[in-house]
Design a protein around this nucleic acid. Structure first.
Length: 555
RNA sequence: UGCCCGAUAGUAUAAUGGUAGUACGACAGAUUUUGGUUCUGUUUGUCUUGGUUCGAAUCCAGGUCGGGCAACCA
């Protein structure tokens, strides 16, 4: 028996519809507007749409909602497709709302013929004013009762380019007194003499979202059209168009969009960060975009697991970014190769290790894997690099690392005993001295000595150098959007720390973009796909390791 | 002050009139050649006031709080 996992509310709806025979097979769609890059909120929608179809043996389309040529571009189309694929999903059919422009035009003519649409000459401002307010009914346009013939004639003229942008619109004739603002004679078509990224200059009138989305769903026989909560008020209109047109009744269902702590998720805000150069583009590793997370080192599986764990409901929510970090650690712990890298190096001199002598030790690739994932060579010698923070002259309680008189294990090597250190004129520690215990060699330890601390290290002679970039949260408050004033004033000034001279072990020279590593005791890292060049490696920190010691220190 | 939606530990998410459970977090312990991993345990919750019922997180009514709606954006 499979484990009993309770259904989310969308799965319940689908199961009920299937059980009632409302649909033989379900069909969903992911409908982005190609006007920006996908972010992790979209990942939730993608996982929901594809996940639903997957679970119930249905299909999912990818459809670009490209009804506004002013903001859209093929650059975005391409990045969206790449991101969906990278997440691990494959769509059944690829569509564009613009493929339906002829059909949508015919739908509009049909509504005119039914006396349910009219051409309005009012300006945008006048239409807005006459729409009234949520508490006040709107007023009818003086053009509302034109004859069907006149409307047909004018709409054709609109299509033929005889009017300029803003001179005329086509409106649905519904109810100016509706408590739902979207039902107060919504605009169906507007004139935009703008080049469209797919239809070029074929059209100068373009359908509004409301006059395109439901019909596109219907044309594709989408059974469950799921979208975020802000479209809830559009649902009556979505249904109205379908009913008046008498076409396949797709149904809309809404869920709460994803919010994450310490970041922003709206396209508008993300665009601002990019345009004002506050980040290094849409794929800056600090961005919550799919491309940013990918560059940061997040894996598709970790993102899918995250989307599964956060669940789906209709209430507003803000997910702790810690859960995202948990998900990527969970995945990377099982797959990432272990390597040793010293970020802030100081010398460790093993005074009883003969000068000029060296040896090759073996380091396990991943203790979580069978046979430890194999081994790689670790050159060892008299002088090593160790992390400056791993030595303290006056150590606090529970300090398991190096301090005068302390013993520690050098990972995969020997136990050493700290015998002294050197300081420069300013009092800064420049080197640590120790003696090693020859019979404590890793794997063949006969010393009988137990130590509490284990440290990473690099042979000073064989060390290579790389740049390492440490990322922290982009904002210093949990929910920047809910704070007073400009959200950008809450950005974390220390969200990027660049370390130029990190000491890396030789095997890391062969690192490939997309490969994940655990730098032992430091976190998970990946090669930056953009900044790395031959001869210059740049590693991005995906996430730190859980750190019980720093937590202990804060007490 | 119109209409619509929502409210369960710190954060999410279950319980579909019948024992409030799970995950992340936090805390404590065991294991550990990563202060990692793994394992064990502990902690904290049904917005409020009434009502229906043998029994209410769940149904009903009032209130409170939060979100959405007045783009020729999606």
């Amino acid at each position: 028996m499979s484990e009993e996992r309770s259904l989310n509310f969308l799965e319940e709806i689908v199961e009920a519809d299937l059980a009632a025979g409302k649909h033989v097979e379900i069909h969903t769609r992911f409908p982005p507007e190609p006007n920006g890059y996908l972010h992790i909120g979209h990942a939730k929608s993608i996982c929901l749409n594809f996940g639903l179809a997957d679970k119930y043996g249905g299909k999912t389309n990818l459809r670009f909602d490209d009804t506004n040529p002013v903001t859209e571009d093929t650059e975005y189309v391409d990045s969206i497709k790449a991101d969906v694929r990278w997440l691990g999903f494959d769509w059944e059919e690829e569509h564009y709302a613009s493929d339906y422009f002829d059909q949508l035009y015919a739908f509009a003519v049909a509504l005119i013929n039914k006396g349910l649409a009219y051409v309005d000459d009012l300006s945008a401002e006048q239409i807005a004013t006459m729409k009234g307010t949520p508490t006040e009914a709107g007023k009818e346009s003086p053009f509302r009762n034109r004859s069907i013939e006149e409307n047909l004639f004018l709409f054709t003229a609109m299509k033929n380019g005889e009017y300029n942008d803003g001179e005329k619109v086509l409106r649905a004739k519904i109810d100016l007194a509706s408590p739902n603002m979207h039902m107060r004679d919504p605009i169906m078509y507007r004139i935009k003499k703008t080049h469209h990224h797919r239809t070029g200059d074929t059209w100068c009138i373009y359908p509004m979202y409301d006059f395109a989305h439901g019909q596109s769903d219907s044309i594709e026989n989408i059974s469950h059209s799921i979208c975020t909560l802000e479209f809830e008020v559009h649902k009556p209109l979505y249904n109205w168009y379908i009913a008046q047109l008498g076409i396949f009744p797709s149904n809309q269902f809404e869920f709460a969009r994803l919010n994450l702590t310490y970041t922003v998720m709206s396209k508008r805000k993300l665009l601002q960060l990019v345009q004002e150069n506050l980040v290094d583009g849409w794929d800056d590793p600090r961005m919550p975009t799919i491309s940013g997370l990918r560059r940061r080192g997040y894996t598709p599986l970790s993102l899918r697991n995250f989307c599964e764990r956060i669940g789906v409901q209709r209430r507003e929510n803000i997910i702790d970014v810690g859960l995202l970090e948990f998900c990527v650690r969970e995945d990377l712990n099982k797959t990432a190769l272990r390597r040793m890298v010293v970020l802030d190096p100081i010398k460790l001199v093993i005074t009883n290790y003969p000068e000029g002598q060296s040896e090759i030790l073996k380091g396990e690739n991943n203790p979580e894997l069978e046979d430890n994932g194999g081994y790689r060579d670790l050159p060892f010698g008299r002088e090593l690099w160790i992390e400056a923070e791993d030595f303290m002259e006056d150590a606090p309680k529970k300090w398991f690392r190096l301090a005068p008189g302390n013993k520690v294990r050098l990972k995969s090597a020997y136990i050493v005993s700290c015998t002294g250190f050197e300081k420069d004129a300013s009092g800064k520690v420049t080197a640590v001295h120790c003696e090693y215990i020859p019979e404590s060699k890793s794997g063949q330890d006969t010393s009988g000595i137990n130590v509490k601390g284990t440290m990473h290290w690099i042979s000073a002679e064989k060390a290579e150098t790389a740049e390492v970039r440490l990322y922290d949260r982009l904002f210093q408050v949990e929910d920047p959007s809910s704070e007073e004033g400009d959200f950008k004033s809450y950005m974390n000034p220390n969200s990027l720390e660049i370390i130029e001279g990190a000491k890396i072990e030789p095997s890391l020279l062969e690192a490939q973009p997309g490969e994940q590593f655990q730098f032992i005791r430091k976190g998970y890292f990946t090669l930056d796909s953009k900044l790395s060049a031959s001869g210059k490696l740049v590693f991005n920190r995906t996430v730190t390791l859980k750190d019980a010691w720093s937590k202990e220190m804060k007490k």
